[in-house]
Write a protein that binds this DNA or RNA. Sequence first.
DNA 1: ATAGGGTTAG
Length: 470
Amino acid sequence: MLLNLIRRRISPSKLSPLRFSTTSSPAERLYNHLQSSTPNLEKELTSSNIKPNATCINEVITRCKPNQFQLGLRFFIWAGTQSGHRHSPYMYTKACDFLKIRANPDLIKNVVESLKKDESFVSVKTMRVVLSICSQAKLADVALWVLRKFPEFGLCVDTVAYNVVIRLFVDEGDLSMGVKLMEEMDGVDLCPDVMTYTALINGFCNAGEVEEAWELAKGMSKKGCVVNTVTYSRILEGVCKCGEMERALELLTEMEKGEEGTSPNAVTYTLVIQAFVEKKRVGEALMVLDRMRERGCSPNRVTASVLIQGVLENGEEGVKDLSKLVDKLVKFGGVPLSECFSSAVVSLIRLKRWEEAEKMFRLMLVRGIRPDGLACSLVLRELCLLERYHDCFLLYEEIEKAGVVSTIDTDVHSVLLLGLCEQGRSWEAAKLAKSMLDKKMRLKVSQVEKIIEALKKTGDEDLMRRLSTS
DNA sequence: ATAGGGTTAG
């Protein structure tokens, strides 16, 4: 950190290139190449021989001031075309946020135009990165504009590029543009693939136009695309969303009777189960569970949590229904008892039935059923909200002992720590603080002073030393 | 490229 500060004070112009390249970070060097206003920026960047990784790319971009965003974007595009590197979705989000692409769509157009003007090397890969940026920023119009620019660079549009643009229009709700583009593909000798169809089928299903989706699916096989379980499941989901549960069951039957590649899987059945649960038709949801079992398909944790929530919410006989369901899920395999109980705890908390949730959670610990990370963190958070810090601490210790991979949020840790201090539980606070230090957690709370003050009372010198150096 | 139920880093 200190080194960075010192470095920044040295004006780059006073350093010879040789000296510069040995003393500065790759990001710094790339950033300086970026400033060099040469006619061909990409060549300049490539000549640096630096292969930037994610951290480095991020560093370069965040160095850009708002008036340099166009340069920053151009750098990001260049970096995305380097061999052996591929921007992760996270990086796309990051770049789009920082460069404020969505608020300023012209940035993309300007960069593409400047690539043309500077006669930089532009490949299909370059365009793919540009389209991914449009995709991340949800800019359908700009994406279409980019698509139309391909010929100007002597490039042929491919199916993947079309799919990106089609998906953007579909997500915007512009289905007719999606269809128009798909039809246009024929004219340039491109064949719509499963992705193209899936995008449009999704769109029609979301718009409640299941018939249209169905027609598209029928058209798929004629074009040599295989209609698979996923496609059918999407349509089934659309049918469910329209509330046509009887038709959904018919479609399910058809899938069960159909060929190998279209037989329903756990996701398919779970969609139907969830739809019944949402319509408070829990009995029928449970029947679908039996049905999937008969077809040799095991429920998974999603199936389980959807059904458990449904039974708790709408079951006639509450706990009795629940234990019957849990027995069944465990017997069917695929979902361990601990997952079922954890789901029940999570559902109860969501339903604001806290007392039942706590009872069940404690029952789990007594019976040696290990709760999952989410159940633990929700229970501990609730206890903190109720200011039952000591209870929370005791449960925390038990959970640690049970060896649950802790996913408890940092802020819950901090609130608990502070709460223990305020309630005069300095021994417990010290123990928690040590545990947090072991996990390399930072004390992220405004009243750090207060905590330190309370911890001093324990007279634990080892702890104080560790706190002061952390 | 399919569902649900929280977070982290890149």
